[in-house]
Design a protein around this nucleic acid. Structure first.
Lengths: 101, 101
DNA sequence: TCGATAATTCGAAACATGTCGAAAAGTCGA
DNA sequence: TCGACTTTTCGACATGTTTCGAATTATCGA
């Protein structure tokens, strides 16, 4: 669990993660619309980081289980792993329960 | 937001945080039962860390807004800050929505 | 006021992370 | 096969984190 938080503790990584969330949130489920996922270089566009650094960050997000990376030709497509997202939701849902008003 | 994740990215800090969650989760709301909150040394008991290290970790959790620390005599009482917990819940709730089955 | 208890601050050491550029590897079209 | 494009790997360096022990501060009871 702390590995997941570690992955999101870096501002650049969080930015990449949120961009990935945003670009797939137009009502498209990950399962029903598997084609148009952004690649590594696309996701790092606005960060101002070197390509090698972006690659490193993507690997961190992947190792934490937050995203999946699948090569498709030259590009490596990235997508959110919804099961990990759900895992986090359950974690904090349980945490918050006693304080729910 | 990344500061919150940073605070939880350390295993010892996460353990302390979870202990604080657990010890106040017996149906007692933070608002209705403000008295019996564990102090700094109590929370670090099972970590095997030096007192100075525990103090440092508590400060990190506090700076992230996850807990509040209030001196009560010799001891400093620690309690979860439910508003930050709710903030996290909203964050991930919004994230998960597009992937909800 | 003194001693005990609880917590913080400080400096230092070990370790981990973030970043880059250069080089290498994978993939595709000509 | 060659060159262009995308990505990964590697080595290096700067910065940040984790941890400790010692010293300091805060509070209370005797």
């Amino acid at each position: 669990m702390s590995a997941i938080f570690g992955a999101l503790s870096n501002p650049n990584r969080l930015q990449i993660f949120l961009r990935l969330i945003a670009c797939c949130s137009e009502g498209d489920s990950w399962l029903t619309e598997p084609e148009p996922c952004p690649c590594v270089s696309e996701l790092g566009e606005d960060t101002g980081l070197a390509m090698s650094t972006i690659s490193h960050h993507m690997k961190e997000l992947s190792r934490a289980g937050l995203i999946r990376m699948d090569r498709n030709g030259q590009k490596v497509e990235c997508r959110i792993d919804p099961s990990t997202l759900e895992k986090i939701n359950v974690f904090f849902g349980g945490c918050c329960k006693p304080w729910k008003k």
